Computed example of a mutant assay.
Amino acid sequence: MRKLVAVAVGVLAIAMTPATALAAPGPKAPPEFVALSDVDPTIVQEMRYFTPHDFVGERIDGYRRPMCILTRDSAEALHKAQMSFLRKGLTLKVYDCYRPQRAVDHFVRWAEDLSDQRMKAEFYPQVDKNRLFDDGYISAKSGHSRGSTLDVTLTRLPAIPTRPYHPGEPLKPCYGPQSARFPDNSIDMGTGYDCFDTLAHTLDPRIHGRQLKNRLLLKNGLEQAGFTNLPEEWWHYTLQSETFPTTYFDFPITRKSLTGRC
Rank of each mutant, 00 (worst) to 15 (best):
F33M: 05
G26N: 11
A24K: 12
G143R: 04
R181T: 05
E32F: 00
C68E: 02
T228K: 10
L216H: 01
A200F: 02
K120T: 10
G26F: 13
C262N: 14
Q240G: 02
E112N: 14
D96L: 13
A180F: 10
L222C: 02
Q82I: 04
P173D: 03
R210S: 12
A75L: 05
T17R: 01
G26L: 09
E58C: 00
T42E: 12
W110A: 01
L70C: 10
P52E: 09
P125S: 08
A77S: 11
F244W: 12
Q117M: 12
L70N: 09
G89S: 04
P177H: 06
A23V: 03
R109V: 03
D194H: 11
R118N: 11
L222P: 00
N130C: 02
A225L: 03
V5R: 11
P177V: 08
S74E: 00
M67Q: 13
Y193R: 00
V11L: 15
T20H: 12
R64C: 07
E58Q: 11
F249G: 04
Q101M: 15
Y137H: 12
N229W: 05
E232Q: 15
Y63G: 03
C97K: 02
D151M: 08
R163G: 09
D135Q: 14
M16T: 13
Y95M: 08
D105E: 15
Y137M: 08
V94H: 06
D184V: 02
Q224W: 02
N130F: 10
S37D: 11
E76D: 12
L90C: 03
Q82V: 06
T20S: 14
E232F: 05
F196Q: 07
A6V: 13
P27M: 08
P27E: 13
R206T: 13
L78K: 01
K120W: 08
R109N: 11
N214S: 07
R64F: 05
T238A: 10
Y237L: 06
Y248R: 10
A19S: 12
L230E: 14
F251K: 06
D250R: 07
T191A: 05
I160T: 14
A77R: 10
L157Y: 01
L239A: 07
Y124R: 01
I160A: 15
F50S: 11
T198C: 06
D204I: 01
P231A: 10
Y248Q: 09
Q82R: 13
G168M: 06
K172A: 09
T153K: 08
P158G: 07
